[in-house]
Design a protein around this nucleic acid. Structure first.
Length: 491
RNA sequence: GGCGGCAUGGCCAAGUGGUAAGGCAGAGGAUUGCAAAUCCUUUACCCCCAGUUCGAAUCUGGGUGCCGCCUCCA
């Protein structure tokens, strides 16, 4: 079996064949760092993290490059609003991005270029386009001439002539007037008073949005790469323009495979900053939803499909994760295993495990069918959970069973496959989320538990239950364990 | 209007020609002083219509509904 991926370029599922055997070069469109990331970003980057982990597990050496767009109108606007600078806004949001991704267990990219640090490559590319007659300058701006590029529209299925009418409906801004064709887009924008600018052969200014990606792909990975990633909302115009620029300049295909993830929806509508219906990653995580719950939530759907974000669906994911997590706990807290040279053609394993591994690989090979892959994890987890539960009850035979090679192998496989999906065991604290300090103190809770123990010993269950109810009202859940022990959880 | 995509049980979601994965919720049972947790069992003919086929959720045509992109956007 080999990996098959849906290529947006052909709108078909294709077998993945790297340019160089055993190696994969990937460029992923990153964020514009003007604000915190929301769940849409999380979904996207979790999906691509899984692609990357799976390729690694399949034996490929992966080079993963993801950019930061650190110059753009929205960053400048934000900086003006808060009276700071472009750099300050960018820096702060890059830090936030890294922190959020880390919490979600998303592997950092191998290289993370920034637009403002790639200006030489950008200027070189624009010059080449100009020399080839694919670009023209007008009043300090430089535009890409879409009519000069034969393949324009091949990714998004747009026909320039057919699109004329739609474009005509746009507001005839000053910028529009400078363009030769409505779809022409800025490669370089002339400086406006008071805005940061950089020198160029066309005067002071700054790069347009699309050109930075073309330049960074080329600088970091070469003229042609294996896979280019991004959200479905980037297909047009961003990726279309990227292709046009790069291919007009190099005469080579920019990327062999274009993968796009579906949007996160809220109430059937795309989650976005402009609609204001977004939840930031950190707001969600800080509200007590664990990172792995969010990961599981996004992975339960196929990456290309829209994913509706609802409280119910998230609750379901949280409960589901509890089960997987309990099974994962059998291996202890050391779950750094995902990095421990996993190999998909693993050594000998008992037949059922080999079969599970195969089903997992088959699912993932099928355009990253994480939903089906998760089914394998849940099935592997089932007996492990049962065992974990018996262990908790102090079942002596369970103790012995836990140390049998069969169980150990099952637990190891579960952990390995979970690792491919970036799922790792979470401790109780991580699951509980942050505690804001309200509610009864530990000492108070302990005192209540002891009082309840006494009541129970006296078979005064009415008092015992009322104590439990009172604590519950304060967000404290009591759980009786075998042997007369009582544990508590803060909700 | 143009381009693309989606419609599967109460909810989420796989399955893309051979008779419906998995998760959540629900129901019954076990266990428990009662709970919680856990364990066992259990719940669908796949938006509508017409075709192709021995056989379709899966293919074709039509219809209906929904979403994304066409302006910044993961």
């Amino acid at each position: 079996m080999t990996l098959k991926l849906t290529n947006s370029l052909t709108r078909r599922v294709e077998e993945f064949r790297p340019i160089e055997p055993g190696k994969v070069s990937i460029y992923c469109c990153g964020v514009t760092v003007y604000d915190l990331c929301h769940l849409g970003h999380a979904r996207s980057y979790i999906a691509w993290d899984v692609l990357r982990r799976y390729l690694r597990w399949s034996g490929y050496a992966v080079t993963f490059v993801q950019n930061y767009t650190d110059i753009d109108d929205k960053i400048l606007k934000r900086a003006a609003e808060e009276g700071s600078s472009m750099e300050a806004v960018s820096e702060r949001n890059i830090e936030a991005f890294v922190a959020d991704m880390t919490r979600l267990n998303i592997l950092p990219a191998d290289r993370m270029p920034r637009a403002t640090r790639s200006l030489d490559a950008i200027r070189t590319l624009i010059s080449e386009l100009e020399a080839k007659g694919a670009a023209y300058s007008a009043d300090g701006d430089v535009y890409f001439a879409v009519m000069k590029h034969a393949g324009y529209g091949k990714l998004s299925g747009r026909d320039l002539e057919q699109q004329q009418d739609n474009a005509a409906g746009r507001v005839a801004s000053e910028e529009e007037a400078r363009k030769q064709h409505p779809f022409d887009f800025a490669l370089w924008k002339g400086a406006k008073p008071g805005e940061p600018s950089f020198p160029s052969p066309w005067g002071e200014g700054r790069p347009g949005w699309h050109i930075e990606c073309s330049a960074m792909v080329r600088e970091e990975l070469g003229d042609t790469i294996d896979i280019h990633l991004g959200g479905a909302d980037l297909v047009f115009p961003h990726h279309e323009n990227e292709i046009a620029q790069s291919e007009a300049a190099t005469g080579k295909e920019l990327a062999h495979y274009w993968l796009h993830n579906g949007m996160v929806n809220v109430g059937g509508q795309k989650m976005s900053k402009s609609l204001g219906n977004f939840t930031t990653i950190r707001a969600l995580l800080d509200s007590g939803v664990s990172p792995m719950t969010l990961r599981l939530f996004t992975l339960q759907a196929h990456y290309r499909k829209p994913l509706d974000f609802t409280a119910d669906a998230l609750d379901a994911a949280a409960t589901g994760w509890k089960g997987l997590n309990a099974a994962l706990a059998l291996m202890g807290t050391d779950t750094s295993g995902s990095a421990a040279a996993p190999e998909r053609s693993a050594p000998e394993q008992p037949a059922p495990l080999a079969e599970a591994r195969q089903r997992f690989a088959t699912a993932m090979d099928d355009d990253l069918n994480t939903s089906a892959a998760l089914a394998v994890l849940f099935e592997l987890a089932k007996p492990l959970r049962a065992l974990a539960n018996r262990l908790e009850r102090g079942d002596a035979s369970a103790e012995a069973e836990a140390h049998t090679p069969a169980m150990a192998a099952q637990a190891a496989l579960l952990q390995e496959l979970a690792g491919v999906l970036g799922l790792q065991h979470e401790t109780a604290e991580a699951q509980a989320g942050s505690h804001d300090g309200a509610g009864p103190s530990e000492a108070e809770i302990q005192a209540q538990i002891e009082a309840r123990q006494a009541a129970k010993a006296a078979r005064d269950f009415g008092t015992a239950d009322s104590i439990r109810e009172a604590l519950k009202a304060q967000g404290i859940e009591l759980i009786d364990k075998p042997g007369g022990l009582t544990e508590w959880l803060r909700h």
